[in-house]
Computed example of a mutant assay.
Amino acid sequence: MAELWKSLPSWVRNIVVPIIVVVVAWKMLWIVLGVVSSLIGLVVNGLVLVGIAAAVIILVKKASKS
């Protein structure tokens, strides 16, 4: 691997490789943020669904008592 790195021209080592690394890191960051935000969205949707179900159950119980 060291021979391959040393065989590259200096402009590739100093310009092209860092640009590729930055682009890949940027894509990975957005993938991670997308996964985290979708998980947070699923949790929020679940909590809203549970809250609505609890409200319906409470209202049905109140209606059946009267």
Rank of each mutant, 00 (worst) to 15 (best):
Val12Pro: 00
Ala54Lys: 13
Val44Glu: 08
Ser10Phe: 08
Gly34Leu: 03
Trp5Met: 12
Asn45Ser: 11
Val60Phe: 13
Trp26Met: 10
Met28Asn: 07
Val48Cys: 02
Gly34Cys: 04
Val48Tyr: 03
Arg13Asp: 06
Val24Cys: 10
Met28Arg: 12
Ile15Thr: 14
Lys61Thr: 15
Leu42Thr: 09
Trp11Ala: 12
Ser7Ala: 15
Pro18Ile: 09
Ile52Cys: 01
Gly51Ser: 09
Leu47Tyr: 04
Lys27Ala: 12
Val50Ser: 08
Val32Gly: 00
Gly51Trp: 01
Val21Ser: 06
Ile58Thr: 13
Ser37Lys: 04
Val60Thr: 13
Lys27Pro: 00
Leu33Thr: 02
Ala55Arg: 10
Gly46Cys: 04
Leu47Phe: 06
Pro18Arg: 07
Pro9His: 10
Val21Cys: 07
Trp5Pro: 00
Leu47Thr: 01
Lys65Tyr: 14
Ser66Arg: 15
Val43Phe: 05
Ala25Asp: 02
Val17Glu: 00
Pro9Val: 04
Lys61Asn: 15
Val48Pro: 00
Val44Ser: 05
Ala2Leu: 10
Lys62Phe: 11
Leu4Asn: 06
Pro18Asn: 06
Val56Arg: 08
Met28Cys: 09
Val36His: 01
Ala63His: 07
Val35Glu: 01
Ile20Glu: 05
Gly41Pro: 00
Gly51Val: 01
Val22Met: 12
Val35Tyr: 03
Ile19His: 03
Ala25Met: 03
Ile31Met: 05
Val36Thr: 05
Lys27Leu: 11
Ala54Tyr: 05
Leu8Lys: 09
Val24Lys: 02
Ser66Ala: 13
Leu47Asn: 10
Ser37Ile: 04
Gly41His: 02
Leu29Pro: 00
Ile40Gln: 11
Leu4Glu: 07
Ile40Ser: 05
Val50Met: 06
Val22Ala: 14
Asn45His: 05
Ala25Phe: 07
Ala25Thr: 10
Lys27Arg: 11
Val21Glu: 08
Val36Tyr: 04
Ala53Gln: 07
Val22Asn: 04
Lys6Val: 01
Ile15Ser: 12
Val35Ser: 00
Val44Ala: 13
Ser7Leu: 03
Ser37Asn: 08
Leu42Asp: 08
Ser10Val: 11
Lys65Pro: 03
Trp11Gly: 01
